Amino acid sequence: MNSQRGALVWLDQFAGYLEMERNYSSNTIRAYVNDLKQLITNEGAEGTKEVLDFTPEEKAEAQTSVVAENQSAQGTEEKQSSAWMEVDGLRSYIRQIQESYSRPTVARKISAIRSFYRYLKREQLIDDDPSKLVRGPKLSRRLPACLDREEVTRLLLAPDDSSLGVRDRALMEVLYASGMRVSELCGLRIQDYNAAAKEMRVIGKGSRERVVLLNDSAQAWLERYLADHWSKLAGGRQPQPDNPLFVSRQATRLSSRSVHRIVLKYARLAGIAKPITPHTLRHTFATHLLEGGADLRVVQDLLGHTTISTTQIYTHVSLDRLRRVYMTSHPRA
Rank of each mutant, 00 (worst) to 15 (best):
K138N: 13
K138P: 05
K138S: 13
K138F: 07
K138D: 09
L139Y: 07
S140L: 05
R141E: 14
R141V: 11
R141F: 03
R141D: 06
R141W: 04
R141P: 05
R142H: 12
R142C: 01
R142Y: 03
R142E: 14
R142K: 15
L143Y: 10
L143F: 10
L143K: 08
L143G: 08
P144G: 04
P144N: 12
P144T: 11
P144F: 04
A145M: 10
A145L: 07
A145E: 15
A145I: 06
A145P: 03
A145F: 03
C146R: 11
C146K: 09
C146Y: 09
C146F: 08
L147S: 00
L147A: 00
L147R: 00
L147G: 00
L147C: 02
L147W: 00
L147V: 06
L147E: 00
D148F: 03
D148Q: 07
D148L: 09
D148M: 08
D148E: 14
D148R: 02
R149P: 00
R149K: 15
E150G: 06
E150H: 12
E150S: 13
E150W: 05
E151S: 11
E151Y: 06
E151R: 06
E151N: 06
E151T: 03
E151C: 06
E151A: 13
V152S: 07
V152N: 02
T153Y: 00
T153R: 14
T153Q: 13
T153S: 12
T153L: 09
T153A: 13
T153V: 11
R154Y: 03
R154E: 13
R154Q: 15
R154T: 07
R154G: 04
L155R: 03
L155A: 03
L155H: 00
L156G: 01
L156Q: 02
L157N: 14
L157Q: 15
L157M: 14
L157F: 08
A158W: 02
A158Q: 09
P159H: 09
P159E: 10
P159I: 09
P159C: 10
D160R: 02
D161G: 12
D161I: 01
D161V: 01
D161F: 03
D161M: 08
S162N: 05
S162F: 01
S162Y: 02
S162V: 04
S162H: 04
S163T: 13
S163I: 05
S163Y: 08
L164I: 14
L164W: 01
L164H: 04
L164C: 11
L164A: 11
G165T: 11
G165I: 09
V166L: 13
V166N: 11
V166Y: 07
V166C: 08
R167E: 10
R167V: 10
R167Y: 11
R167K: 12
R167P: 02
R167I: 12
D168W: 01
D168Y: 02
D168T: 05
R169Q: 15
R169V: 08
R169Y: 06
R169H: 13
A170W: 00
A170N: 09
A170Y: 02
A170M: 04
A170L: 01
